[in-house]
Design a protein around this nucleic acid. Structure first.
Lengths: 165, 165
DNA sequence: ACTGCTGTTGCATCATGGTGCAATAAGTGT
DNA sequence: ACACTTATTGCACCATGATGCAACAGCAGT
């Protein structure tokens, strides 16, 4: 796990200036490295600890950090943009339910399979890569399956929408 | 490939009413089944062929079609929401470049590996599933690799950002 | 063809993503 | 400590995503 001062060094080596807001922002990101943060999450924190920093400044700093691969960006259905610290592992898996929009990290069995598939393909093993699955989570899948049964009775789209077990 | 009237039947079987706007919207989606359409793309078309239909109506109809798996939604970095007709295959793969935001369907070797990995995991083979990879496309990867060389000289983040070959 | 029920639309409005520009302040050299 | 250069900020503003609500229009039954 990289430390605050390592990240400061990264900024410096890219001709970026170290402003108070950036220091605090980096710390917040490090302290929440396992979470997917929205712009609002970050802005609320900043407003509390360093009032007056503009939404757009935070936004642009996050964009800058993204370019340096300090954080990565995800676009999530229903949730919109999310930022997350990129820690030591280079491949990230996410599972997003199409119905409820919930972000999930489960389905370990699948992810392990995919991970090894990624390794098998030349050049990918060290790539900084994110994989996002869209499907139906177990609870939404059940509901959908029921609805689906009704639909099949009408003879339409009978092959669609299967739950993930 | 499903036809317009099949889709009308799907709407009916879900207690949805067939309005003129919906007919035209479905036709437009079918005619552009291979494209990723933005709300604006669709709205521009509607404005030309059936002026007066509100942005929000189109938006809500697309949401409704999504629920019926007639189309699927993608959230693309830099581009935002995109809608696409869901044709016969049930698993979709997309590769999105983190740098330029370009949507790609290449990297067939990887996709085939992943596809078989999906099949190996029980319950996934028939799931209506989308997989999105975020990484660097070949042209952006090259640029990044160069930039990376400079950064390494400063001793920071030397392991990050690898091109996809 | 008329009528009533209720799904759908258009409008108003808010939340969030994104950008141009002039004022400000971080970093460098003296 | 001071001054200069230019990255960065705050502000104003626009684009797009999303929703509540009253008016409207499919469509099923008569």
């Amino acid at each position: 796990m990289k430390k605050h001062k390592d990240l400061i060094a990264v900024l410096k080596s890219n001709e970026m200036r170290i402003t108070p807001a950036r220091r605090l922002l980096l710390q917040f990101i490090l302290d929440n490295s396992s979470k997917q943060l929205s712009l609002k999450d970050v802005h609320d924190f900043m407003e509390e600890n360093m009032p007056g920093v503009d939404r757009s400044s935070i936004y642009r700093n996050l964009e800058a950090f993204k370019k340096l691969d300090i954080i990565q960006e995800l676009m999530l259905p229903k949730l919109g943009k999310r930022f997350q610290y990129v820690f030591d592992r280079k491949v990230h898996h996410f599972f997003i339910c199409k119905a409820c929009g919930k972000l999930n990290k489960g389905n370990k069995a699948l992810f392990e399979k995919v991970e090894s598939a990624l390794k098998d393909v030349h050049g990918f093993s060290k790539a900084n890569l994110s994989v996002v699955f869209y499907g139906y989570c177990s609870s939404c899948g059940k509901k959908t399956a029921q609805k689906e049964a009704t639909r099949s009775a009408h003879g339409a789209l009978s092959e669609a929408q299967q739950s993930m077990r």
